[in-house]
Computed example of a mutant assay.
Amino acid sequence: MTAVTSPRIGVAGLAALVLLQLAVTAAPLALLPFLGLHIARMGAAPTFWTAAALAAPAVTTLAMTPAWTGLARRFSLPTLTGWTGGLSAASCVLIALAADPLMLLVARFVQGLAGGGVVLALAFRAASRTPGRGFALMQQAVSAGCLLGPLAGGLAFERGCLGPLMLGCGGLLLAVTLAAAAAGRRLRAEPDGVSPNDRPRRRELSLLCAGMCGSAGAFAFVAFFPAWATAHDPAVYTPGLIGLLHSLSWLVALLVLPLWARGLDGASPGIALGLSLIGCGLTFAAVPLGTGLAGIVALRLLQGALFAGQAPALFAAVEALGPSRTVAVARARASLTVGQLIGPFAAGLALASLGPSGTVFAAAGLSLAGAAALAAAAHRPRSARYPTP
């Protein structure tokens, strides 16, 4: 992974921060692919409870968005890191102990309250000299968690050991949280002299819209690519192959993120975001065009490489508008969360009216709509914009 050590945290502290981000990402993803099956084993109606449990973290994440400015002003970054790690561990323990869907739903609400997507982004940024390196390293840890979580969860679910796995994740989270908080005791959420209080400007709103559309397109594609693949050729696209393609995308993302870090620090993050959105949109749209298995493999690898830089570019671009880093990170994270909700819903509507290929084109359209929002903002006359502080 990219080295971004700061004199204020050191290599060991950075390693603890990376492990914390990896665990915060991997732990919920160990359950997520099997959530419906897990609820069905509890003897409950899986459709309602699965939908509720899937949406629960997004609800509390969005509810917490306005609170982060006040929390960052009142508490230190190590304290907020302890909040994130502690609540993430509590969520894992609740999942392990849940005997009914209601307890599982509570655990998922607690996961959203932890605010890992905001607090850890602030921690990585504070531990780095440049936004590109900090946010790219964070995304590398996220990619590793996305790769490892479902693999570990699948093995545990098959062996009936999901509860012990989640308890183990909770213990690991507590250990790395203590290490990361201790190592980051000199880190600050905001640069010196900055008060986390700001109002959105039009340029920022266009960036947030672009991030939301990009997130929506990616989640629409991931959610409905299996539907397209099995309808296209069920003999070739087995569940195992679909899962392998998904894992390979995250592996490519993990490997190429150092290149994204250099690009973000050497050029405009807004341009990088636009290139990622256009690239993802075009590769999504190319999937149904009869490229064969080899072409689909190449497209999935390319999608992983292109999508990898999207979140770091969004965080860096919104932060560059200033002055508050906390506000920028919280709003960027909220836009990505909204996209995660909108994308599968939009693709589901496309499935009903246009069939499996329609879901893939819907994903492409969402990503390209994000690029269009950026382009429109870039060409708006200066007199139509709010002044930049």
Results as ranks from 00 to 15, higher is better:
residue 5 T to P: 02
residue 10 G to A: 08
residue 10 G to N: 09
residue 13 G to L: 05
residue 15 A to F: 01
residue 18 V to H: 13
residue 19 L to T: 11
residue 19 L to I: 10
residue 22 L to P: 06
residue 24 V to H: 04
residue 28 P to I: 03
residue 31 L to H: 07
residue 32 L to C: 08
residue 36 G to C: 02
residue 40 A to R: 03
residue 43 G to Q: 09
residue 52 A to I: 05
residue 56 A to D: 02
residue 61 T to C: 00
residue 63 A to Q: 02
residue 68 W to S: 08
residue 69 T to S: 08
residue 69 T to W: 03
residue 73 R to G: 06
residue 74 R to I: 01
residue 77 L to G: 04
residue 78 P to K: 00
residue 84 T to Q: 12
residue 88 S to L: 01
residue 88 S to P: 01
residue 91 S to K: 05
residue 92 C to N: 09
residue 99 A to E: 10
residue 100 D to S: 15
residue 101 P to N: 07
residue 104 L to H: 04
residue 104 L to D: 05
residue 113 L to T: 13
residue 116 G to W: 13
residue 117 G to Q: 09
residue 121 A to K: 11
residue 126 A to F: 02
residue 126 A to T: 02
residue 127 A to M: 10
residue 128 S to V: 11
residue 130 T to L: 14
residue 131 P to D: 03
residue 135 F to M: 11
residue 143 S to I: 02
residue 143 S to W: 02
residue 144 A to Q: 03
residue 148 L to T: 06
residue 152 A to F: 03
residue 154 G to M: 08
residue 159 R to I: 03
residue 159 R to D: 03
residue 169 C to L: 01
residue 176 V to C: 08
residue 177 T to M: 07
residue 177 T to L: 11
residue 182 A to M: 04
residue 182 A to N: 04
residue 185 R to D: 00
residue 188 R to F: 01
residue 191 P to V: 02
residue 195 S to Q: 03
residue 196 P to G: 01
residue 197 N to P: 01
residue 204 E to G: 12
residue 205 L to W: 11
residue 210 A to H: 04
residue 220 A to H: 10
residue 223 A to F: 08
residue 224 F to D: 14
residue 232 H to P: 02
residue 236 V to C: 14
residue 240 G to M: 03
residue 242 I to G: 00
residue 243 G to Q: 10
residue 245 L to M: 06
residue 246 H to D: 05
residue 247 S to H: 11
residue 248 L to R: 09
residue 250 W to H: 13
residue 258 P to D: 13
residue 268 S to H: 05
residue 270 G to I: 09
residue 274 G to K: 11
residue 276 S to K: 13
residue 277 L to V: 09
residue 280 C to P: 04
residue 282 L to T: 12
residue 282 L to S: 12
residue 283 T to P: 02
residue 284 F to L: 11
residue 289 L to Y: 01
residue 298 A to G: 11
residue 300 R to Q: 03
residue 302 L to V: 12
residue 304 G to C: 01
residue 304 G to H: 07
residue 306 L to H: 12
residue 313 A to G: 03
residue 319 E to V: 05
residue 321 L to G: 05
residue 322 G to A: 11
residue 324 S to L: 07
residue 329 V to P: 00
residue 335 S to K: 04
residue 336 L to G: 14
residue 338 V to K: 06
residue 339 G to E: 04
residue 354 L to F: 03
residue 355 G to R: 06
residue 358 G to Y: 01
residue 358 G to I: 06
residue 359 T to Q: 09
residue 359 T to H: 08
residue 369 A to V: 13
residue 373 A to N: 06
residue 375 A to D: 14
residue 380 R to S: 12
residue 381 P to A: 15
residue 382 R to G: 15
residue 384 A to H: 15
residue 385 R to K: 11
residue 386 Y to E: 15
residue 386 Y to W: 14
residue 386 Y to M: 15
residue 386 Y to K: 14
